[in-house]
Design a binder for these strands. Sequence first.
DNA 1: TATAGTCCGGAAATCGATTTCCCGCAAGTC
DNA 2: GACTTGCGGGAAATCGATTTCCGGACTATA
Lengths: 370, 370
Amino acid sequence: MTAQVLNGKKTRGSGVDIIQVAQCAGVSPATVSRVTNGRSTVAKHLAKKVWRAIEELGYTPNPQARALVSGRSRVLGLLVSEITNPFFPELMQNFEDVAGKHDFEVMVGSTNYNRERAKIFIRRLVQRRVEGVAVMTFRAESHFLDELIAENIPLVTIDVSADAARSLVLEVDYAQGIDEAVQHLALLGHRWIGFASGPMPHLTNVRRKDAFVRAAKRIGLAAEKAPVFVGDHTFEGGTQAALYFLGLKPRPTAIVCSNDMMAVGVLRVMAERGIQVPRDMSVIGFDDIHLAEFINPPLTTVRMSRQELAKAAFHGLQQLWTEKSPGSRNAIHVGTRLVVRQSTDSPREAAEALPRKPRVRKARMRPVLA
Amino acid sequence: MTAQVLNGKKTRGSGVDIIQVAQCAGVSPATVSRVTNGRSTVAKHLAKKVWRAIEELGYTPNPQARALVSGRSRVLGLLVSEITNPFFPELMQNFEDVAGKHDFEVMVGSTNYNRERAKIFIRRLVQRRVEGVAVMTFRAESHFLDELIAENIPLVTIDVSADAARSLVLEVDYAQGIDEAVQHLALLGHRWIGFASGPMPHLTNVRRKDAFVRAAKRIGLAAEKAPVFVGDHTFEGGTQAALYFLGLKPRPTAIVCSNDMMAVGVLRVMAERGIQVPRDMSVIGFDDIHLAEFINPPLTTVRMSRQELAKAAFHGLQQLWTEKSPGSRNAIHVGTRLVVRQSTDSPREAAEALPRKPRVRKARMRPVLA
DNA sequence: TATAGTCCGGAAATCGATTTCCCGCAAGTC
DNA sequence: GACTTGCGGGAAATCGATTTCCGGACTATA
């Protein structure tokens, strides 16, 4: 399509420059530039000729030249914490899609919880002159970002505000989804629910945990303090949490997890111990990663929409670009909500007491333990 | 670090240009350029002064300007087929790491098996003047790449050669790992093994299937043709394959899958039907995605190393850059190998006939079906 | 009709590097 | 001692756009 034959010689898209287009259209390069950028007002008949010439030659402006003079690279940075957690690839794709629609490219980097990796990546961002960065690491490792702040690069973060002029926070409403989760369990008859939290110094994890504790209190589920296990936001963290709750007496009849990877770890321990989910133990995750649907049993979880998050991050950056005064520090709100699948059910005792309501569910393995 | 105070005013890394460095070092801009690029021979004492000036001012060359004049953007493209298959994020990260070490940035795009998405992404690659593209889609959808080929952009593909001058193929040795898998099953006592194949027109799937059929024949496992189900390379494809094999009589005692996502689908069906893996059915995957380790039971699978693949792809591009004659069309070899976990065991009958060897395995659910 | 105000579009400066061209100096050769 | 050779490094052209500046034409107003 792009490659065309003109004057008998093949002209490649990237071999055509603005001067050739200008000559072909019979105008000056400045006019071509004005047309391609929608600048000021160019007479309609001239604009038409320019577009025709562009089409004919298969011209695409050289982004390097464009960036050099305009100072705008049209590249954004996206920092995530671990690529093997499926939450992040999906977020990446959504962010790239939004950015792409606005003619931005995205440099993605995964810290893998490694301070040095993050530093190196951020240096690359600065060197490439990105126009904005979305930090989606759910972490408050402040001085990661010092270099970006020093360069006055627009910054969007999650949960915890970067203390910088051109920055903005995405406030995720964890309470919304977690309230739904706890209510869902309460309705099923659960009265003693454990919470598997992520590492505690991190604000995002504090918020998730607090949301759970408040929800539990509000429902009046347990007179005593709801049992909380503080672990890692990983598969292993989940297995540890599961072992902890199984050792408790009375043993909780349900576990709410701070993210899906932990829930997957919990499910593994339950399977190994022959504890039937959801009959003997209900499990709820957080994130709604793709995998949640595929695991056994399909995981009931709180969805934090990757698409919504990605859009919010991009719009946050847009806001920072247009906004004159770096004063209006309004956070952007991102909701969460419960997705019910098959890892939750009435606890055993309640299920026997209550009339068994018909549920759409495939045949499952017979329970083994008491 | 980068931001320094000089002459009383704060100088940002991206605010310093080569001329200031030249003045600071008392040389010409040309010399600075020569030093930063390691060009020709600059007197040691001058080079030292230049480096000192660079350090002091926190200078980083403007990549746009550099790219503009040199014609080298130092950006690569990476095309994958679906971001939700964990194989690809891991591949992406590895590729970015290798590329980053050589000062390249990477534009990643996921086609999601959507022709239009691929087209759009490739157009973006061309517009950004990438210096090379790695197409890791395991697909032969040839005319995706026409635009790249027209621009004469170096191209590395998997399995199937792009019919272009500056291109190179990564030949994955499927047979290696699949032979190991079949032998492993044979040693466990399996004699009737099903193969869940991916969609058939695609060369990569043909190769995987052929490798299986040959391995099965070579071992002399079954007098008759080994049963093959042709499905989709997805979770759903796996569930369909499982249902097919369960309907067969005699029912296979093991299923080898063309990728891990299918294997995950198979495991789901088995769990729903109460069929115990590995006691009643052994399952082997292909890829060794991260998830394979976390699913129940941990999946025995053939590992195709993402790191090896990423390195091979990058080195392939390097080869295409240096190589003068576009003649030496030597493919690059990438190996595979079996990783034994807990989804394979002796089939029930054989297990009872043979003396039960002790295996390290956690407690599992009691088998339910015959 | 004269003058001010608008609008359009061309000429040229600019962004920040790389790279070519060329000159001067020092070393080597006869 | 004169001439060649080689090498280090400065001046200036170059990449391909955007953007400023400015002049000419056209319209509106008195």
